[in-house]
Design a protein around this nucleic acid. Structure first.
Lengths: 228, 228
DNA sequence: GTCTGGAGCCTTGTATACGAACTTGCACGG
DNA sequence: CCGTGCAAGTTCGTATACAAGGCTCCAGAC
């Protein structure tokens, strides 16, 4: 399908076909549009996206290296499946790595970024207060990702950022499947985010690391047995 | 059951031009055959390896996602360059992650694997005692990598293993460029490896984690980083 | 009825063709 | 002499063609 007429659509990103395919498939997996275990046929995807198989193959290869897709030689690819053990592993590693990131961010984060963190957290709480979880799950996830991304960025460690973004991301649907988004957990998340912000403001590396690690480790033990 | 008997014992490698290209280029970079900053021409590599450009492209793409190659749209790729800051970052992250891995390995590693660790360390020391660093650098690096790989494997965390293998590996030439392999450091490495083995034998997670982290963090403060 | 085997279709893997974008180098003007 | 701009050449990005290997499903035997 020759589609070279369209003006530089939304210039935003590289106008490459491989990037288009990558974003398309990745978004579909993260959002749950493509479910775990679903088969991925190159020609089918190519037609759907409007490019040829070549960039689709490259996109699938990247996604496979990120762990979101499983490829086997001469067999159709599939969307990766995640067990509870996978989720636990991801949060253990994120706890370690983001804790390290928060420690470093302590000494580096700008006042502007701290303000952004507070704004993001304000909005998360507002969204939750107004509509509760179920109506705004995707917006909530988006804000949560931004919260963590701001801190990871402030850690000034490109490899840390890359690992978090590319090797330790799970489809939102998986997360919400294994870990019920109960109100109590959400309230705990808010308390923890506020504590992380406080630690960063105080420029206390030990506190920041511990608070961030605790935040991530705690997620696995939900719904909270001991409400403080 | 498919009865594909007498398959070549060494499965895996012969299959695939992309794997061939990937191994070829990666090995060349790690070994220093392809130096930092050197340009990578797809057609040239394809001819050299004996495949077409397609698998070479895919191999380069994977290497780029691992950080060993830098690709820019419509520009020739290059072997990535690493600053002292990059080396430091890698060892900080490895310290954290491998420390975590050693902690987990404590409770999981088999007696066989501990024996293998000791055998590997024995050989490292023998190689060093007989010939010193300069004659056996590559064998030494190989053994060192195996030492760390055994522990990472024993941690039973596939993502941890993958991250260590694909996102936190540096060309040996880079390492040996920034961090002079002096005898004193080598002796310290031996002491630290022995301590790590002892901690694993004792099944003491705190000790194992601390010993492994210390080992990796210590590398950066050897004799004196040579700025360049 | 169930198992086995194989033929044909389907999907993936690799090579090649073609168009788009950068680079190089020279000409020309300041 | 040096900088600018155009044009040819080179390299990359994408599409398409062809080859190699699985999968399906039906026929035949036990």
């Amino acid at each position: 399908m020759t589609n070279q007429d369209n003006a530089p659509a939304r210039d935003g990103e590289a106008s490459g076909a491989v990037e288009t395919a990558y974003r398309f498939i990745r978004t579909a997996i993260i959002s749950g549009d493509l479910a775990s275990g679903e088969t991925l046929q190159e020609s089918r995807l190519a037609e759907r996206i409007g490019v040829s198989r070549t960039p689709v193959r490259e996109a699938l290869s990247r996604l496979a290296s990120e762990g979101l897709v499983v490829l086997e030689r001469y067999r159709r690819g599939q969307v990766a499946s995640f067990s509870m053990a996978d989720v636990a592993e991801v949060f253990r590693l994120r706890g370690k790595l983001e804790g390290h990131g928060a420690r470093r961010a302590c000494r580096r984060i700008s006042a502007d970024d701290i303000a952004r963190l507070e704004a993001v957290e304000d909005e998360m709480e507002a969204v939750f207060a107004e509509l509760g979880w179920h109506r705004h799950l995707s917006r909530f996830d988006e804000l949560n990702n931004e919260f963590h991304a701001i801190i990871a960025r402030a850690a000034d460690s490109p490899r840390l950022e890359k690992i978090l973004a590319s090797s330790l991301e799970l489809p939102a649907s998986i997360f919400n499947h294994y870990i019920e988004p109960v109100d109590e957990r959400t309230r705990r998340t808010h308390r923890q985010h506020r504590e992380i912000i406080a630690a960063l403001k105080a420029r206390n590396p030990d506190w920041a690391e511990a608070a961030m690690s605790a935040h991530l480790f705690s997620i696995l033990n939900d719904p909270a047995p001991d409400p403080e």
